[in-house]
């Protein structure tokens, strides 16, 4: 098994970056296959943006190598930059330019010529929902539209690899949903790295997730794999009509249960809310149900909750 380098869109090997004495990135290695949408997660200051800047050739690494489609970011910097579209975290834009003028400039810098340049601009206008915004000055656009202009800029030359550093930062919920749909649409044919510290976003759009903290990878896998890796066992939420003491005693006896808490939620009706924590990864929902039935309690709800990505994230990054 010797996969050719070209089957990976991006290969990062033993990447380290030091700013003075501070290690922003420490011995980071990962790969992305073509067509993959990778979620790059981490708390603020974990080294996400530094990694992006190294991949885009803005700054060189202290040590380690980055290959984009087999090309080195140091020796073949210009060719690498041609393949990459980058939406930086702060989404910098030339505020005094009009949208169309700006995209035209980006296209020219990217080496696009007249007929294709115009058709690309029109395409970006419709893909990013910028139609009728062409003659507006960028500096006067709302945040949502500025973000779209930034995305259009990144995709202008139809890049193979798209790096999006917190593309939904500062947007309202409707805009977030729109941008997310847009990314999913693009992700069908492009390789994307999606940086974020908002987990729901990444789990909704990405096929694979890498979590980094203090410049190192702390976990990687699909959203499901990551949640199942949580150190905590499963949690079951019950709503039932019974005596609290009896519930605690009987449920604690079910095999696999590590703790039971129960408290009254509806005094008149006598309903209890109980939380059962299991110590194992196995599903003990059925055993709990049998226990409830055997004791003749009325059951209104039995819900199995796996650890959320948020919990995994917090566990991994708080140390």
């Amino acid at each position: 098994m010797n996969p050719t380098t070209n089957s990976f869109m991006l290969e990062v090997k033993n990447l380290s970056k030091k700013f003075g004495e501070v290690h922003a990135v420490r011995n980071l290695s990962f790969q992305i296959r073509k067509g993959e949408v990778l979620g790059f997660l981490g708390p603020n200051g974990a080294g996400k943006t530094t990694t992006m800047r190294i991949i885009t050739c803005y700054i060189p690494a202290t040590s380690g190598v980055v290959h984009v489609d087999g090309m080195d970011t140091v020796n073949e910097s210009l060719r690498v930059r041609e393949r990459i579209g980058y939406l930086a975290e702060t989404n910098p834009l030339y505020g005094d330019m009009c949208v169309r003028e700006y995209l035209q400039f980006v296209g020219e810098i990217r080496g696009l010529k007249a007929p294709r340049l115009d058709s690309r601009i029109d395409e970006m206008f419709s893909v990013c929902g910028l139609t009728r915004m062409g003659n507006r000055q960028i500096g006067k656009l709302s945040k949502g539209f500025r973000q779209r202009v930034g995305l259009a800029q990144a995709m202008m030359h139809n890049p193979d690899l798209l790096l999006l550093d917190e593309p939904t930062a500062g947007l309202d919920p409707n805009q977030i949903i729109e941008i997310r749909q847009l990314i999913r649409k693009i992700g069908a044919e492009k390789t994307i790295i999606y940086c974020s510290h908002i987990l729901s976003e990444v789990s909704a759009t990405c096929s694979r997730i890498i979590i980094i903290n203090e410049g190192q990878i702390v976990a990687s896998g699909t959203a499901d794999e990551l949640t199942s890796r949580s150190t905590r066992g499963n949690r079951y939420i019950l709503r039932l009509k019974a005596d609290p003491g009896a519930v605690q005693g009987k449920l604690a006896a079910v095999s696999g249960v590590s703790s039971v808490t129960a408290h009254q939620v509806d005094r008149a009706g006598g309903w209890l809310a109980a939380e059962v924590l299991s110590g194992t990864q196995e599903d003990i929902g059925e055993a709990i149900f049998r226990c409830v039935v055997a004791n003749g309690w009325s059951l209104a709800e039995l819900r199995h909750e796996t650890a959320s990505l948020e919990e995994v994230f917090t566990q991994l990054t708080r140390g």
Partner: peptide
């Protein structure tokens, strides 16, 4: 100041 330098220098221009 407006950080466009980061953009400019990640475009394929020397």
């Amino acid at each position: 100041k407006v950080k466009t330098l980061e953009l400019l220098l990640t475009w394929p221009v020397s």
